[in-house]
């Protein structure tokens, strides 16, 4: 092991400029990859568990709500609720109907806005019970919306996708841009690692030749190269993690969250997940090109 470590440090010194180039490329590409992961998680967070399952939400009346079909000061009655359910279920355009009571809606709200200051000012009574509807053909939402909005006890009808899709379009663009750029840079980093290891192996070919001759195992011969590229990749990953943490702290926690309090934002646990993926990619990215680059020097 001592021999391997000595070789790692002499390798790092010998290829200092190349290793620096690899480090910077790794740092930028892994940061972009991490950002892509964060945007994906942000989109999933906004979508919640309903976005992919339903198209339309019918909000029912509470004593506090006002609207075309609400009686001021009164909530939707059980009879109205059953009529709404029956009408929806008999509509051929409706595929599925889910009902959520005020308590259930509040519970979901608490989970979604766990970190938000908005949570403290809300109670279960402030929530509206609702019907969530999945359509047979989502394009035909207007037919169902028009019928539902006229039903007694329905305060409002909301097409979730109408609100969220433009936002998701932007976020998706951002995500694919980040993922695409990071993919290209990660490829560049992998090629750089492969080249630098190939150069290092070529420089040490005489030594490797002797090692093979006297019966050193392939693992032993490869170890210094693997450790060298792993070390560079892990430093790159650490810098990328620090950059993501900085983005979360300064852009999300200090700027975005106070500015848009009604919006649900990714938290540190999401940054943690992105960091784990980032480290996994960094390790894979350092190991695979190294194994490929050293293969020809290890053929027995």
């Amino acid at each position: 092991m001592r021999h391997a470590l000595t070789e790692v440090f002499s390798g790092l010194r010998r290829n200092a400029s190349m290793n620096f180039a690899v480090l910077v490329t790794m740092w930028v590409s892994l940061t972009l990859f991490g950002l892509g992961t964060l945007v994906t998680q942000q989109v999933d967070l906004i979508k919640g568990r309903w976005y992919d399952r339903i198209e339309i939400t019918l909000f029912l009346c509470t004593p506090a709500t006002q609207g075309d079909n609400c009686t001021p000061g009164e909530a939707t009655t059980d009879g109205q609720r059953e009529s709404i359910r029956a009408a929806l279920e008999s509509n051929p355009e409706v595929a599925e109907v889910f009902y959520q009571s005020q308590a259930e809606v509040f519970e979901e709200f608490q989970q979604t806005y766990a970190d938000s200051p908005v949570l403290a000012s809300m109670k279960a009574e402030d929530m509206q019970d609702l019907f969530r509807i999945k359509l047979v053909n989502p394009e035909e939402y207007q037919v169902v919306t028009a019928e539902a909005i006229r039903m007694p006890g329905v305060q409002n009808v909301q097409d979730l996708r109408q609100f969220l899709d433009p936002l998701f379009d932007w976020l998706n663009w951002g995500r694919w841009l980040a993922v695409g750029a990071s993919g290209l840079l990660l490829l560049a980093a992998a090629l750089q690692i492969g080249n630098s290891i190939r150069m290092a192996a070529h420089t040490r070919r005489r030594e490797i030749g002797i090692m093979r001759l006297v019966g050193a195992s392939n693992t032993y011969i490869m170890l210094p190269f693997l450790l060298e590229s792993l070390l560079v990749a892990l430093v790159g990953a650490a810098l990328a993690c620090a950059t993501l943490a900085g983005i979360q702290q300064f852009a999300i926690v200090e700027k975005a969250k106070p500015a848009l309090q009604g919006f649900t934002w990714i938290g540190w646990e999401h940054v943690g997940i992105a960091m784990v993926w980032l480290v996994v990619v960094a390790v894979a990215l350092s190991m695979i090109p190294t194994l490929v680059a050293t293969r020809r020097y290890l053929k027995v």
Partner: peptide, 14 residues
């Protein structure tokens, strides 16, 4: 097998 070759070579000086 390739992985056994190092052991073979440990018994051969060159």
């Amino acid at each position: 097998a390739g992985w056994r070759v190092p052991k073979l070579r440990r018994g051969i000086g060159t």
